[in-house]
């Protein structure tokens, strides 16, 4: 998967036609094989753009910054990224007319070790669902592939409760409350996060296990039915916490019980918590 040339050409063309003010893409980080996001405002810098299977980050996150808000933006999105973009559009955070979206038919990206990432092997929607222009060959059945329940949560769910409790207590203990997960998430765009609000802080310690527990639980519930499994949060986490576990757990409950589509696949679909069905499970309620 290498669309470097195509993306450079598209960006150059868009700048030449005056259609965009900023192009959000990837560039080499300059010291190893990995890439970092880049916001290009000068057409001469277009040659910095790259796109390979090392283009791991979800660039939609950069649509919530002041560098892109109220500007005309060109952006590259993979399948998962495009779903978060869909949600951003539905939730009125970005305007479609301000965007030029280069969609990728994604073959999966790789981690530092060169292994295909877990969310890519499990991916149900490799093709971008929002785009003005698509690159690559469409993956057959994108969007209708079989749902694979995440292997990690299956394994954890089989363990005894006490072991799970111990496992997660360690996870929450290792959290340093830096909020990088929140900042890296495209869907965490609130003006002031509820966890930082007075009401919440009043009842919370600062950097403690129980505060981390509260923050991460609230965070994952706020993303339930919205998380697109791009794993930006995990890539950002300095403590390398397995944050995907919380999201995948919610996703599987929602997918299995409410017959909902995955988050952001359907335009105008707001996620499972903002609608209901009379057929929702009721047997867990006395």
């Amino acid at each position: 998967m290498n669309y470097t040339k195509q993306i450079q050409d598209i960006a150059a063309k868009l700048f030449a036609e005056g259609k965009i003010d900023v192009f959000v893409g990837y560039r080499m980080n300059g010291f190893d094989e990995n890439q970092v996001p880049v916001l290009i405002t000068d057409p001469q810098d277009v040659s910095k753009l790259v796109f390979t299977d090392k283009s791991v980050f979800n660039l939609v996150n950069y649509l919530k910054t002041d560098h892109t808000r109220r500007k005309r933006v060109g952006i590259v999105v993979k399948g998962c990224d495009s779903r978060s973009l869909n949600l951003m559009l539905t939730e009125s955070q970005v305007k479609r007319e301000n965007l030029y979206v280069v969609g990728i038919c994604c073959e999966g990206v790789v981690d530092d070790a060169g292994e295909k990432m877990q969310n890519c092997t499990d991916c149900m929607v490799p093709d971008a669902v929002v785009s003005d222009e698509m690159l690559g060959t469409a993956v057959s059945g994108s969007g209708t592939l079989t749902y694979k329940k995440n292997a990690d949560i299956v394994a954890l769910a089989e363990k005894p409760l006490t072991e799970r409790a111990a496992y997660f207590e360690e996870v929450f203990e290792n959290c340093i409350r830096c909020n990088a997960c929140r900042h890296s998430c495209p869907l965490c765009y609130c003006a002031k996060c509820c966890i930082d609000q007075e009401t919440a802080t009043l009842y919370n310690g600062a950097n403690t296990t129980s505060a981390a527990f509260h923050a991460l639980m609230t965070w994952s519930l706020h993303l339930a039915g919205r998380c697109v499994d791009c794993r930006n949060c995990e890539k950002a986490c300095p403590s390398h916490l397995p944050l995907h576990l919380l999201h995948k757990q919610n996703e599987s409950v929602i997918y299995e019980n409410f017959q909902e589509h995955l988050a952001g696949v359907i335009p105008e679909d707001r996620g499972a918590f903002y609608k209901y069905s009379l057929k929702d499970p009721d047997d867990f309620i006395m």
């Binding site: 939730e91 009125s92 955070q93 609130c190 003006a191 002031k192 707001r270 996620g271 918590f273 609608k275």
Partner: peptide
């Protein structure tokens, strides 16, 4: 208003 991000999910519920 200061905290509202305008996602309009409340409108739906």
């Amino acid at each position: 208003n200061e905290y509202c991000s305008g996602c309009q999910n409340c409108v739906k519920v």
